[in-house]
Every structure is written in structure tokens, then in C-alpha cells.
Design a protein around this nucleic acid. Sequence first.
RNA 1: GCGCCUUUAGCUCAGUCGGUAGAGCAGCGGACUUUUAAUCCGUUGGUCCCGGGUUCGAGUCCCGGAGGGCGCACCA
Length: 499
Amino acid sequence: MDEEFGKSEAALVAARRESLAALRSRGRDPFAQTRFSVDATAAELNARYGFLEIGQHAETENWNVAGRVMSIRTAGKTMFVDLHDRTGRLQLYVRKDELGETFADWEDLDRGDVVGVSGFMFRSKKGDLTLHVKSFAVLSKSLMPLPDKWHGLQDVEKRYRQRYVDLIVNAGVRDTMILRSKIVSEMRRFIDAQGFYECETPTLLHVAGGASARPFLTSVNALSGEEMQLRIATELNLKRLIVGGLERVYEIGRIFRNEGIDTTHNPEFTMLELYAAYWDVHDMMDFNEALINDLVQVVTGGAEELLVGEQTISFARPFRRVAYLDAMRDGSGGKYTREQLLDPSGAAKIVEELGLPKSPTHGHALDKIFERLVEPALVQPTFVTDYPVIISPLAKRKAGDPELVDRYELFCNRMEISNAFTELNDPDDQRGRFEAQARERAAGDEEVPQPDWDFVRALEYGMPPTAGIGIGVDRLVMLLTNNVSIRDVLLFPLQRQHG
RNA sequence: GCGCCUUUAGCUCAGUCGGUAGAGCAGCGGACUUUUAAUCCGUUGGUCCCGGGUUCGAGUCCCGGAGGGCGCACCA
């Protein structure tokens, strides 16, 4: 029969189909309707029976556990099986003299099959807590061969394209994704405790604004094919809700930017944006510090330090603070002054001196200079404050220093983690800045968003003084889970269609 | 978009100077009533990413292409 398949993967699948047929012939259809009542997880049983000594049994207590068979070790008329569920591993022990004819069903199980087992706990001779199986059900059949039991799945391409296989065999990936879920849920808990409303704003917009990025384009059949864009930020709609009087709002949502893909960028990513009426940028800094500190403690079980790569990063409060222009000055050994940096031709000259590619705009030049001179040193959490207004079109000017705004970015491990400011609520100033953007766009810079004039109208109704923040959730998770690529914290990172 | 690296059995990987494809695991058959990368004996399994070229002969060298990774560019 095997000859009919010829190819080795097909032969492996054929062998599994044969054991499927064998199970069915004995009335054990893995795909039949079966309701198996699970009453314990691997982790629960391992914790609960930690007291058992070698050879000791807890025969009077019966447990029902379900999971995937990940290793089968036969020893004559007994078997040891590793069962994996979402909480971890549990060893099973099976004896032919107890199961009789149904022992044959165990012999037809393959690595990867899903079973439900009932039995009692004991500690084996080698000291492993083990479930002694009294009865069982085959709950699903795995027809595909699994990767190497020891090396797991290493092929990066296959790991991303077939994440389900990666999750089955690579425990670290599962741990990271579960930790991500815990981080996001703790984020919600922390925010909700301060009276914020979680809001859902549209993903499909006529004008994607609130950031500078190329949007994805689509069209709506029900509106005669009207052109629409996927959002590049949630900012403008959340601020409309502040105008509407909700006062404390946030959204943890998917953002889409039609730009490059690399270790810190995926075209769709998750952003937390949060707005609080009657807060200013300093309130937001306190909030930000407390939130990050809390998340670090949740991840570490109470510590305020994280090992990221080779570095230990301390999240003890307060975080370091440095003003944007001061950081540039210090990063250049005192050479580059505020006057030079805030002058478009002065900044262009610095770009040239540093050997950076020529920048199309003053704002772009400042970013490049900052990236070169300051960012590499921002390993410990640092608030960079007092950004120039020219790179902050939605932030309020500093009192007494209108070239700067009340804004900060939080950097950690050389990555931007959050961006926050006191929101611009003067509609005339906002209109002026949008008009300036419209001119840049007309001059050919496609990254600059189209102005959202209705947003100006909303401000004309009166927005309370407000502070807002955006936090890149994926990058924060990278930091908290010690991963260097955004793909390793995304379940399904974008990949080119199969070639 | 550019540069570098990479692609060999289901998985993890070797493959020398260009000489006709290897291992471990998994699978299959067998032994074993406390194993845990179980062990022991036997054994199946290949579009060497794709397409050209050079050569008596290409997994190996050359050209083109595809997928993936990293870096650069882009990403306030």
C-alpha cells in the first residue's frame, strides 16, 4: 500500500490514515461527536500533587484531562505518553493488563493525536508526576507528521506561514503569545480602573489622519464603490469623543500603514491610544510610568527590572527625562545648538555633516539627526520631552515657548514605546497647521496626510484641555517578552503569498 | 527598491577538489511491565527551491528567477 504513495510525506500521512481506519474499525472514531468533560489541566495536577513521594499514589481521586499526545515511549506492555495542554505537560502511564483490548487503541495513537484521559496521579520511579490512565477517548486524529520532537520547527518561513505547527511544537512561542494576552488584559484592567471607556472607532475612513503614513486603499460597494482608506491612527476620532464629552476614552486597535516591513514594523499593528480631558502632558507622563512599571511587575512577578538581550533595564520610577533639543546638543558634544536645529538650513547642514542622506523636510532632518545622535543611547526608559512644533502637528505649544510643544516620547531599548502630548484644542492653530500640511502634500510629500477639516470643526465646538498618548503594543510586548522581532510577538505576521 | 546570507528526506542538519545522496529524529517491522531526546535489532523514505548554461559528468561552478532572514533605504 505504501508503494502507491511513493513520496515520503504521503507515506507518513498514509500510515496515520491507516491507524485512523484501525481506530474506527474498533468503534473509536476520533472525529465522531464526543463530549469529553475536562476537569483539570496539566499545570493544576502537577501543582496539586507536588507532595507525592516516589511510588506514592492518589488512587481515590480521579481526574479527566485532555490534550495532544507529544511523545510516546513504549516499554513492553506499558507505555509512557507526554500529554500537552495549554498549561504545559503531563505524563501518562498506560498498562496493557489494565486496559485489555483497548490497549490496542493506544498502539494506534500517533504523535499529535488529541485524547481525553481519566485516571489518578502518582509519582513514578524516576520522580515524574504521572497520571495513571484508567480509561480514555480519542478526540481527534492528527494526519500530518509533526516536526522533530527535540529540535522543534526551526524553519522561520514555515513557522510564520504555519503558525499552528509552530505553536504545537515550540513551547516558547506559545508562552510568548499567552504572555501577550496577559499583558493586554492587564493594560485594560489598569486603564479601566481609572474610569476610562474603551471605545471602538472606525477602521474604514474617507480620510486617514492622525499620523504621517501611506494608507491602504479600498472601496465600498454599497456606496457605489466610494474610495476609502484604512486608518493609520485612532487619534482624530478619539478626540472627537472627547469633544463629545466622554472625557476619558481609549482604544486598543489595529492600525494599518502601507509601508516597510522589518523587525520593528508590520503593515498592521496594534496601538493603544488613550485621551484624558483635564490632564496635561505631565499627568500623562505619570500615568505612562505607572502603567509600564505595573506591566513589568506583572510580567516578572513583582520585580522592576527586565533582562532585555544582554542588558538589564530598570523600570523603577521615576524614569529618566531629557529635553529633545538638549539631548541633541549633548549627543553632539555640545556642538549642535537649539538655534541651528530649529533653523531649516541649519538642520540640513547638520544632516550633511553627519553624512546622512539629504532630507526632504526640516522635520525629516530632525528625525534623522535624533536617530543618529540620541536614540542609540536610549536603552534605559527615558522620556524625551519638549519636541519642536514643526514635527508635532496635533500638540499644543508650550506656554512661553511657542516653537516647542508639550510633548514627550518614551524610549526604551532604543525603541520608541510611546508618544504623548497635551492636545492642541485651538481650532485656528489646528487649521493653520493642517494648511501647512496641505502645502507639503501638494509639494509632493505623499506621507503627509490629507487634512481632516471636520476635525477642525469638532474643535470649534470646544474640546476641553486634554492629554493623549499612543503606545505601540507590539513593541511593548517585544520589550516585555524579550523578543527582537515584531514577527515573534504577532501570531500571524504578514508574509508574501506562496511562491 | 538596494546589498549580504539562505533554501538538500516529514523535521533538524552534514555533503571535501565537480564523480552519480548521508546522519539523527520521526515513520514502518520486531524485543522490552516505571519510561522521559527511553534503549536494542532490522528497515522504508530524495523534483538537492525553479529555469537556463558550462562540463564526459552539477547538490557543488556560472547566469536568471522565486521564497525566507538580516542590514540599508522608507516608516514625524
